[in-house]
Write a protein that binds this DNA or RNA. Structure first.
Lengths: 239, 239
DNA sequence: GCCCGGCCGTACGGAACCGGACCGACACGT
DNA sequence: ACGTGTCGGTCCGGTTCCGTACGGCCGGGC
């Protein structure tokens, strides 16, 4: 029987951290830690899923492609989640692209190994299904939010979600990419971000952004941030 | 051993129809058929789920409430699906409201009975989880679609989705309700619907709408309709 | 040192849609 | 026959955001 000292450091991923020791140990033995660079694509849109990923220190965007080259971010995944929900629900391909938006470490598990572990452990299935529900609620809120709330509010919401999933107060991000993810022009982001910066809520320069006043930012955001945040706290557990 | 003649008519619900005979028989014995009138609310937003519903001839909207009294439809459920996904994923409450948009029959199963049957049957779990993935893809596409596609295209898309889930070419629907579901003004719907009617794609009068030219409507819609339709065909099976 | 590419500020006409409002048409109950 | 409530057509000024464009700034490579 392995003691806790043989398990290595506790995982920073909240889903893994909530598992019982023996389930966790089995998984940790099969994980491959991978360093994900910015913009790395983990899953292509409509392609077969070859592995699932549990973020430890990275941040992943789930992006739906529209024809005409447009794209839209529908969800953000960090330590509170995993990439590969379709596999969990019985599909072998992802309709959305998974792209790294914050470089860092993730724990990788091949599709076949993931299926074996899912078959073996009830608590793993239960935990991950509850996460799937939380993610569904995130996408649901995003659907309702898009087009109804002002760009400035949605930008504030995105900054808060990224802050929850990033390592510190700062992260690499350009207006160009934010524009793609929020489905607006780059110039629109420049204006909205400029307003938030003048208000002292954020700061940024050449591809780097940081949160300066988190309570103020929460006030500037639409209610969607809080709704999704509470859903995660309830279904996955508080950070 | 009960023969097929004791099962009654085959269910029109596609999820139930795809189950093996013995699983189906067990469920049918516990279902309570209910007649759902227009605008009946099956699940309140953020309330506990007391039962799940499998539509036979009705059509249900899943609606996210926003503060300020706004609301937004994020999914539509008909014979291809069920109402009560959160229960399936391990949550006991629904973040969205479920409201009847097309009156008809649904098969009702209490939460406790549903949990028992889920524990008992692997094939039931598998089937319903695949549906949950299809529904997630619908919500995902809706999130991407909102705000990026023109109202006229989104309206065409909604008409097609409703057509797939309605009994015939016509259904009761007012501009007022369409406006709420698509998150626009009632006057906006009147203009867009007027355009579609002038083009000969739909017809309507005082709370009744009907599809007049389905291929034409598919052409007028954004690609989101086809994307979601194919996802359902792949994950739930063709109608 | 100079050029080039990535990144951000800004501007302007126009499209889509909002918020509010008014009116006519129809259905229904009395 | 009449009032009442629902439904849909239309109009107006105003706002958000688009599409496009130009220019400035910074960092890195030759």
């Amino acid at each position: 029987m392995p003691g806790p000292d043989q398990l290595g450091p506790a995982p920073r991923n909240r889903l893994l951290a909530s598992l019982p020791p023996d389930d966790l140990a089995r998984l940790l033995a099969r994980f491959e830690p991978v360093e994900l660079p910015l913009r790395r694509v983990l899953l292509g849109a409509d392609q077969e899923i070859d592995a699932v990923y549990f973020p430890e220190t990275c941040m992943i965007s789930m992006i739906a492609a529209l024809d005409g080259g447009d794209a839209a971010e529908v969800g953000l995944v960090g330590r509170e989640g995993m990439v590969g929900i379709p596999l969990l629900l019985g599909s072998d391909r992802s309709p959305t692209e998974a792209m790294c938006q914050g470089s860092g470490i993730a724990l990788r598990l091949s599709t076949s190994a993931f299926r074996e572990e899912m078959d073996r452990s009830l608590v793993l299935r239960t935990t991950l299904l509850r996460y799937a529900q939380a993610f569904l609620e995130q996408v649901t809120q995003t659907a309702a939010c898009n087009g109804r709330h002002l760009l400035e509010q949605r930008l504030a919401r995105w900054m808060l979600m990224a802050h929850d999933r990033a390592e510190g107060d700062a992260f690499q991000m350009t207006h160009e990419f934010l524009a793609m993810m929020l489905g607006v022009r780059r110039a629109g982001i420049s204006v909205a971000a400029g307003t938030l910066q003048k208000a002292g809520l954020i700061r940024y320069e050449r591809g780097r952004m940081l949160i300066a006043d988190r309570p103020g930012l929460e006030h500037a955001s639409c209610e969607c941030y809080g709704v999704v945040r509470r859903a995660y706290d309830r279904l996955v557990g508080p950070p």
